[in-house]
């Protein structure tokens, strides 16, 4: 199965243009289990996680025309849909978001195309930065990133002292932050 982000973007494009079911199946088989694992971490209930995953993937199907490959890759877009589904369907809250069409919205002072280019480059930097972390740090960061496992649970699971887990995560975050370029 392909994991090339650009291929994934093309598949969403095919769903958007011609309701391509085969393309959607490939997307589903790749992202469905990942979204389910994400939902599982948040809800700790298999049934609920399955429902929220299906809800998310139906939105991917229905909103495919709104996906803009210039703005980010498929996994980022699908993540935001999963996140919003979790918030609205499970936590029953609104997610306040800015509205670029609002008259009071302050637009970017650079050309949107430049911003998009920059965003893509930076997304690539994030990926590289994650890739460059030592395997153990990367795993800890990934496990703790979505706020699903407490640091003490991780410590117990890996048989490490709590302080070690905390400092490894902190080190990893510091490295990531550096490569993201902190802003004052």
């Amino acid at each position: 199965m392909t994991e090339d982000p650009e291929d994934m973007s093309r598949l969403i494009g095919a769903v958007a243009r011609v309701q391509d079911v085969a393309a959607f199946e490939t997307l589903f088989r790749h992202f469905g289990p990942r979204v389910k694992a994400y939902m599982m971490r948040h809800t700790r209930n298999l049934q609920t996680a399955e429902e929220l995953m299906q809800e998310t993937m139906m939105l991917v199907w229905n909103k495919a025309t709104l996906f803009d490959p210039e703005k980010g890759n498929a996994s980022t877009w699908i993540f935001t849909i999963a996140r919003n589904t979790f918030i609205s369907a499970y936590r029953k809250q609104n997610r306040p978001e800015f509205d670029p069409n609002d008259p009071a919205f302050v637009p970017d002072d650079v050309e949107p195309a430049d911003v998009e280019f920059q965003n893509r480059q930076e997304a690539e930097m994030v990926r590289t930065a994650l890739q460059d972390l030592p395997a153990e740090q990367r795993e800890l960061v990934q496990r703790s990133f979505f706020g699903d496992v407490s640091h003490s649970d991780l410590a117990a699971e890996y048989g490490l002292p709590l302080g070690t887990v905390k400092s490894r995560i902190r080190m990893a975050i510091d490295k990531l932050r550096k490569s993201l370029g902190e802003r004052r």
Partner: peptide, 17 residues
């Protein structure tokens, strides 16, 4: 946008059920 890209990347690398 960077944090969301990082989160998307995490989703990509999550261990599927």
């Amino acid at each position: 946008a960077k944090f969301e890209a990082a989160a998307g990347d995490m989703l990509e690398k999550i261990e599927p059920s």
